[in-house]
């Protein structure tokens, strides 16, 4: 389904560039050994901007929970209603949460707890966005 295409900015460009190479990267503070997503200018734990790196992650995760959107304010999504909005937790750190429409999974039949794998969807000319699919 069509999605709004992200507009990369200085902070987010490395993330979206990685998506375009079909890689999922997450900001990581090497001092705190702690990942954070969405990315921020500084580590939200130690407050420093100096130890942030982009760490490539496995792209494996689990379905944490979901809801089913019937009446979105986002115009571009309205034609596809109702649709799943799923919260994914990352294998490396379940505190890191991603969002997904869970393509391939019927509406309101979301298997909470199931394993998922990252996938990439083209949402604008040359821009991929991270999505997730149930595996196994």
């Amino acid at each position: 389904m069509p999605k709004q295409a992200p507009v990369p900015d200085e902070l987010s460009k490395p993330f979206w560039d990685a998506c375009n190479e079909r890689r999922l990267v997450v900001q990581n503070c090497t001092a705190c050994n702690r990942m954070q997503y969405p990315p921020e200018q500084t580590c939200s734990e130690c407050g420093s901007e100096h130890n942030l790196e982009w760490r490539e992650v496995s792209g494996r995760g689990k379905v944490n929970g979901y809801c089913v959107m019937h009446d979105s304010r986002i115009r571009l999504l309205q034609a596809d209603q109702p649709f799943n909005i799923v919260v994914i937790e990352l294998e490396e750190d379940p505190a890191i949460k991603f969002l997904s429409h869970l393509p391939g999974t019927p509406v309101d039949q979301v298997p909470v707890g199931a394993s998922v794998l990252v996938d990439f969807q083209e949402v604008g000319p040359g821009q991929l966005i991270h999505e997730w699919r149930v595996v196994g």
Partner: peptide, 12 residues
């Protein structure tokens, strides 16, 4: 979707 919305709005 730009700013904070780039992490949320694509999925609604």
């Amino acid at each position: 979707a730009s700013g904070p919305g780039q992490w949320t709005n694509p999925w609604g």
